[in-house]
């Protein structure tokens, strides 16, 4: 009798479980998913989201993946919009991980914890480089390290990844630089062509056209390997400096991330992660990305979360150094 009871309970549990799993599998069927992009249409984040969204739709069996562009305030608006979205598994988003800096130094406008997002994955890395203009007297890292006059660097707005990267690297390698913020998009390249600013630290891929056109050259890379170009780690002399450069390297790995709002049910996060993985491993997606000159170097769920945590976990000493580097300019 007891056996029968146990068996029937087991059976009920089994049925319940399988019922639940079919629920999950079907959850996305005929649903609409919003994909928040923290920039205007066009540009890298938008292109990746539209590409990945197309395959997510197929792999989740969803009706549509709708791109929602919420640009502004250096990706903060997009990130906060995603953070505050209903965590029902139907909203995901992508933004620039330069926001990590804002959290480390505790900026007042940074009202959320990046650790709380449900990380789905990342599509590519964004190795950084320093590009110097042909109009500039600085021709290589030795010149830059030995510069007596401050070298003018351009960067995007004050809260941006490019500004913080530049300030951090300058602190780590003790560079004599004068960072002028406010050069968005390709304005920095224009300014270099006019002979105003001398150099920019930014994502390597964004300089391709500039360099191919013969306006400047790379002198340093961070978080990537390019033949004949030295790596920032080669110039590091102290442990603190190594840690600062390591933060930039971690950020360089976290290119084109996708996350879901905090509190999204675990099973739906798993479905999203599985579909994300299947999408990025789809040869068709890789071929399309190639055609668009968008590299694919994926990482998934837990791994991305660990990278985020490792970038955020800094000793008070390092936090103070970052604060000084970033806020010191204000």
């Amino acid at each position: 009798m007891r056996h029968v009871l146990i068996r029937s309970v087991a059976l009920i549990l089994l049925v319940a479980c399988s019922q639940e799993t079919t629920d999950d599998a079907d959850f996305y069927h005929a649903k609409n998913i919003s994909y928040i992009v923290a920039t205007d249409p066009g540009g890298g984040f938008d292109a990746y989201a539209r590409l990945i969204g197309k395959y997510l739709k197929k792999n989740l069996g969803a009706d549509n993946v709708i791109i929602r562009n919420t640009p502004g305030a250096g990706h903060l608006i997009g990130a906060i919009t995603l953070f505050r979205s209903k965590p029902d598994g139907l909203t995901i988003g992508t933004f620039n991980m330069g926001l990590i800096y804002g959290q480390i130094v505790g900026k007042p406008v940074h009202t959320f914890d990046l650790r709380e997002f449900e990380w789905i994955g990342k599509a590519s890395g964004e190795p950084r480089s320093i590009v110097v203009s042909n109009n500039c007297a600085i021709k290589n890292m030795e010149d830059l390290m030995a510069a007596e006059e401050p070298v003018k660097f351009g960067s995007a707005g004050l809260g941006s990844a490019s500004f913080s990267d530049t300030m951090l690297l300058a602190t780590a390698l003790d560079l004599n630089v004068d960072v002028i913020p406010g050069f968005e998009g390709t304005e920095g390249e224009m300014s270099m062509m006019r002979g105003e600013i001398c150099a920019i630290l930014g994502s390597t891929s964004s300089f391709t056209q500039f360099i191919e056109s013969g306006y400047g050259s790379l002198i340093l890379t961070i978080g990537g390997n390019i033949d004949g170009i030295p790596n920032a780690m080669d110039f590091v002399e102290t442990e603190q400096a190594r840690r600062l450069v390591a933060i930039i390297e971690t950020l360089a790995q976290l290119g084109r991330v996708t996350a879901a709002p905090p509190g999204t049910p675990k099973d739906r996060v798993e479905s999203l992660r599985a579909a994300y993985k299947a999408s990025l491993e789809d040869p068709d997606l890789v071929a399309e990305a190639n055609r668009m000159a968008r590299p694919i170097e994926p990482a998934y769920g837990e791994e991305v979360y660990q990278l985020v945590v490792s970038a955020l976990d800094q000793t008070p000493e390092i936090v103070a150094m970052i604060k000084k580097a970033i806020d010191g300019a204000q």
């Binding site: 406008v109 707005g157 004050l158 809260g159 913020p181 406010g182 204000q330």
Partner: peptide, 10 residues
Amino acid sequence: VNLDPQTGTQ
């Protein structure tokens, strides 16, 4: 009306 482009304050 925006985030100050220089300081990032509201």
